[in-house]
């Protein structure tokens, strides 16, 4: 190996360590007995106690399931709507530029400005402390963002394709479903992943709108900061588990995600 290449690899190793170290320490903290959480030794003793008490004592399984339901549900609800809205903005003069930016309006407010009115409305509707309520609010809050991602994507698809389909005898709907959507698959995959991640990590709405039986992972983790101090071992275990679906999802869909975020087009 030449000197230059050696240096380059050394730099890369250093960067990898910076990224990997916190994750390593997270795993380490979660897999030692709780009383050794702050022990300076690298790995004094192996124990799954944190995980066991997290599930048995804190009912983390329930939270985990809630998060999966809410994140999947909201993304399944929001993505088709975002695809239709984004397509309308990209292809037709729907509301002009003004409407494109108007849909972003909710993203420009601090989330708490939306959370409190939502709480009032939900109380009237009886949607507080319900997973349905969270699914709806996440879908609504993520819709503008997903719309913009998909809009960019649809704009990158040549209009010729739909025109070819339409002159071939397809209706506008058929052209959209049979030609545009399949071509936009990488973009849709990107939108699904990002929507899932946003919903998975969301804290504020979940905190205000959920109750004991509907708390999601972020809310459950926050609850581990008790009056008796932070139960850091359980937090570490919870965070380690919270990362898993994101790793799986991004790994599974990585090739789409990269193409989806960088190209935005076909051809």
């Amino acid at each position: 190996m030449s000197r230059a290449s050696l240096l380059r690899h050394a730099a890369l190793v250093a960067i990898c360590l910076v990224v990997a170290l916190p994750i390593f320490w997270l795993l380490r903290t979660s897999l030692v007995p709780p009383e050794l959480s702050y022990d300076p030794r690298i790995w004094p003793e192996f124990s799954t106690e944190n995980y066991r008490t997290l599930f048995a004592g804190n009912g983390f399984g329930r939270n985990y399931l809630n998060s999966i339901i809410v994140a999947l549900g909201s993304v399944l609800l929001a993505t088709p709507l975002a695809a239709l809205t984004g397509y309308a903005f990209a292809r037709f003069r729907t509301g002009g530029k003004a409407a494109r930016f108007a849909v972003l309006a909710t993203q420009m407010l601090p989330p708490v400005a939306l959370a409190l009115p939502t709480f009032m409305i939900y109380r009237e509707l009886g949607l507080t402390n319900s997973l349905t309520g969270l699914v709806i609010v996440y879908a609504v809050v993520n819709l503008p963002f997903l719309t913009w991602i998909l809009m960019g994507f649809f704009e990158g698809i040549p209009a010729d394709l739909e025109e070819a389909a339409i002159t071939d005898g397809a209706t506008n709907w058929q052209a959209f479903l049979l030609v545009v959507l399949p071509v936009a698959r990488p973009g849709i995959a990107a939108a699904v992943v990002l929507g899932f991640i946003l919903a998975w990590n969301e804290f504020l709405f979940a905190l205000i709108l959920s109750g004991p039986s509907t708390a999601t992972v972020p809310v459950a983790l926050a609850a581990l900061q008790t009056s008796n101090g932070v139960e850091i071992g359980k937090v570490a275990a919870g965070v380690a588990l919270a990362i898993v679906p994101l790793m799986v999802v991004s790994r599974f869909i990585q090739k789409y995600l990269v193409r989806g975020l960088s190209f935005g087009g076909v051809s």
Partner: peptide
């Protein structure tokens, strides 16, 4: 367009990828 019984060949060919 679909009711005109015409066929269009585009400059970009516009094949469904």
């Amino acid at each position: 367009p679909r009711d005109r019984n015409i066929a269009v060949v585009f400059q970009t060919y516009a094949l469904y990828p």
